[in-house]
């Protein structure tokens, strides 16, 4: 199983790398910073013996993304699982959001997903099989003050999943999204402990999530156990009501 993970050294991305390294035959990981990727490769190779290709790329740069996929195509000629963990979260009231920030938030969270799906599905089509899993957010369906642009982009992810499932199903490619609730990752480290406690109290399970709550769901969706699941958005949020 050939796996590509974006946002590889982020919270969920890194946990996913360690999880998929257990059952992948080759892992392609990407992120913006080559040094961070190399450090992750060093950690992974201490525990796993599979080949790992770390390729730095800006997910918002079409040319760099193309080079990444050319490398995959040349190296393995196939892609079985694509996991798009890359994304940004800018906490900002809309009234105080600059146009550049709005564009960047949409690009990082939505346009990049569209672009990667385009390349990944083309590679998966060669073998008429593949699984794509994107990351949405609970914010897409429930909203959150100060996250209107982020929420809009993540809602776009859910629309993308619904339509692309219909487009790619006949060629053997499944696509789903996971919508995490509040997961303790670097993406939300700017939240104070009071804010975190308040959010934890809004969950049915009475606690914040962590990456180990998310990764098994990602694994499930890309496994044959989920072979009849496509076009779905699965909330993994501990019953959070925002």
């Amino acid at each position: 199983m050939i796996v590509l993970i974006t946002g590889a050294y982020g919270g969920i991305g890194k946990a996913a790398c360690f999880s998929y390294a257990k059952n992948a035959t080759r892992l392609f990981i990407t992120g913006r910073d080559q040094d961070k990727l190399n450090a992750l490769v060093a950690e992974l190779t201490q525990n796993f013996s599979i080949p790992i290709d770390a390729i730095a790329a800006d997910i918002n740069d079409n040319a760099q993304v193309k080079v990444l996929f050319q490398h995959i195509a040349k190296t393995t000629k196939r892609l079985d699982v694509f996991l798009h963990c890359a994304g940004t979260l800018t906490q900002q009231p809309l009234m105080m959001s600059r146009f550049e920030m709005i564009q960047n938030e949409i690009a990082s969270n939505l346009t990049s997903a569209v672009l990667f799906c385009q390349f990944a599905s083309k590679l998966m089509m060669r073998n008429k099989q593949g699984v794509i899993t994107l990351l949405s957010s609970i914010v897409a369906s429930q909203g959150s003050a100060g996250q209107s642009v982020y929420g809009a982009a993540k809602a776009g992810i859910e629309g993308l999943v619904k339509s692309l499932a219909k487009e790619l199903g006949s060629v053997g490619i499944r696509i789903n999204a996971v919508a995490p609730g509040f997961i303790e990752t670097p993406l939300v480290e700017h939240f104070s402990s009071e804010e975190k406690t308040m959010i934890a109290n809004k969950t049915s399970l009475g606690r914040l999530g962590n990456v180990d709550d998310i990764v098994p769901v990602l694994q499930f969706l890309s496994s044959s156990n989920a072979r009849y699941i496509t076009g779905q958005v699965l909330a993994v949020d501990g019953g959070l009501v925002l």
Binding site: A73, K77, S121, K122, L123, M125, R126, S170, V171
Partner: peptide, 13 residues
């Protein structure tokens, strides 16, 4: 359109 996607993938391969 579906066959076109498959054709493109086949030619690239």
């Amino acid at each position: 359109s579906t066959a076109h996607m498959i054709l493109i993938a086949q030619l690239e391969n």
